[in-house]
């Protein structure tokens, strides 16, 4: 049985799983709550930009696929809130932190989704980056988080493919469609590289989280993987990567690529992105507009309990 930090560290180092009722260091619990709830918030806020295109999807099949995808995101948010709640917090408190702007969510969703090709780029690049981040988390040391990530990853594999298939279809289309696709890649490429977080030399949580096995690879390792994975996928359908410094490096066996605009990264993070305010306003409105409904359901359940009891 785990009672001390030393025992805990040894247990986790041996790749054993921690379960909700096990003893754990406060920092571990807090970090997990922060990480899992941020992840959940990202799924929920992430529904908005893509949800905006459900009504405008250009075919019935695309409409159905996008509905299913955005619905999955709601589901993933829910699995993750459910994992966070095993750590002794309530979803409503986590949601309050999101609505007040105290909690963070992935900055990528503060970029505007302007054309149908953006829906393709999001699935391909944003979900692609998310998968790279998430697959290692399936082996995370905290049982409920690892189990929800397994579920999420299993379901998410179709998300990336549907996005790429939108791009493939556009690149097979007319000149205007190809331009739409290239423009979307140009706008989404750098923000999706930013999704892996600050460079390793500036990342504050990395080493402790690696030790706790709630992070498996560094931000820069995962970012490199993203570049190596995406370049051939883009080339294969005739898209050009929007990075002049991008080239294959025989020595490292990886692509070299240009420097991220960290100024933009930190500004969007700080709330200065094109859609920060709008996204939060929409979430707040949905929450406020739904209050009477949630209240009514509780009142009804209470009445029924009384008549039964």
């Amino acid at each position: 049985m785990i009672q001390t930090v030393e025992q805990f560290d040894a247990y986790v180092a041996a790749e054993k799983k921690i379960e909700p009722k096990d003893w754990m260091p406060d920092g571990y619990r807090k970090t997990l709550i922060r990480q899992i709830s941020q992840h959940a918030h990202s799924e929920v806020v992430g529904m908005l930009p893509e949800g905006n295109w459900i009504t405008r999807a250009p075919s019935l099949q695309r409409k159905a696929i996008l509905l299913a995808k955005v619905q999955d995101e709601a589901g993933h948010g829910l699995y993750l809130y459910s994992a966070a709640e095993t750590l002794g917090v309530e979803r409503s408190d986590l949601v309050d932190d999101l609505l007040s702007g105290k909690a963070k969510y992935s900055s990528i969703f503060n970029y505007p989704v302007l054309t149908w090709a953006d829906i393709g780029a999001i699935g391909w690049l944003v979900d692609g980056a998310a998968i790279l981040n998430q697959v290692p988390l399936c082996r995370c040391s905290y049982g409920p988080y690892s189990r929800s990530m397994i579920r999420v990853c299993k379901e998410e594999s179709f998300h990336q493919r549907q996005g790429y298939s939108i791009m493939v279809e556009l690149m097979k289309g007319n000149e205007a469609q190809r331009e739409m696709a290239q423009d979307a890649l140009n706008r989404w490429w750098w923000p999706s590289l930013m999704m892996f977080g600050p460079s390793d030399k500036d990342s504050e949580h990395s080493s402790q989280n690696m030790k706790w096995k709630i992070k498996r690879f560094t931000n820069d390792e995962l970012r490199q993987r993203m570049v190596d994975m995406t370049v051939p996928q883009a080339e294969c359908i005739g898209l050009k990567m929007p990075d002049k410094e991008l080239k294959w490096n025989d020595e490292t066996g990886h692509h070299d690529f240009g420097e991220i605009d960290w100024d933009e990264f930190y500004n969007v993070l700080a709330g200065n992105g094109p859609c920060n305010e709008e996204r939060l306003a929409v979430r707040n409105k949905a929450h406020d507009d739904g209050a009477w409904v949630r209240e009514a359901a509780v009142a009804y359940a209470d009445k029924k309990k009384k008549t039964k009891g």
Binding site: G75, L78, Y79, S82, A83, E85, R91, R147, S148, R151, R294, A297, V298, Y300, A301, K304
Partner: peptide, 19 residues
């Protein structure tokens, strides 16, 4: 498989089915 929120058992079953 996990958890969810619902106001009553019927809703919980419906939500579980959808989720």
């Amino acid at each position: 498989v996990g958890s969810l929120h619902a106001s009553d058992a019927e809703m919980a079953i419906g939500n579980a089915r959808d989720v």
